[in-house]
Design a protein around this nucleic acid. Structure first.
Length: 128
DNA sequence: CGACTGACGGCCT
DNA sequence: AAGGCCGCCAGTC
């Protein structure tokens, strides 16, 4: 398998894992990385979301991948470059029942103790 | 084609 | 307790 194919496989793994996050729950980039077997690449997980297609014809896109349920390990919605993006993500989460709070720095936070989702392995990987 | 960037995280001061 | 540094590596300039 060529390197570019591995990169594609990584993107696919990330999107597939995110699709398993339950409605109304959130998890972190780092945890997704761990679940797909690459615990040292949370940054690449962020890249995947950044490039998530808007095109609903794509296998994975904004419609079928709950990208809004992924935040950083601190429980904060990553500000990224444009504040509006994080703001939009917060709105998407609140729309599905997740409580988002704003701290003194204006960072949008979610309480992991209430909405966190951190299984040891992906439900789809569990064999019985 | 080389250098810089960054939806992150953990370890080290 | 708070902040800095480094690893990771696909994208973008």
């Amino acid at each position: 398998m060529a390197r570019s194919d591995e990169a594609t496989a990584f993107f696919t793994a990330v999107y597939a894992a995110i699709q398993e996050i339950p409605h109304g729950k959130v998890t972190s980039y780092g945890h997704i990385a761990k679940l797909i077997g690459t615990p040292e690449r949370p940054r690449q997980v962020g890249i995947c979301l950044k490039h998530l297609p808007q095109d609903t014809d794509a296998r994975f896109n904004h419609e079928n991948v709950p990208w809004q349920r992924v935040i950083n390990a601190k429980g904060i919605i990553s500000p990224r470059s444009q504040p509006s993006g994080a703001r939009n993500q917060a709105a998407a989460l609140e729309a599905e029942g997740v409580t988002v709070t704003t701290d003194a720095l204006g960072e949008l936070m979610v309480d992991f103790s209430e909405f966190g989702w951190f299984p040891d392995v992906l439900p789809s990987e569990v064999e019985e």
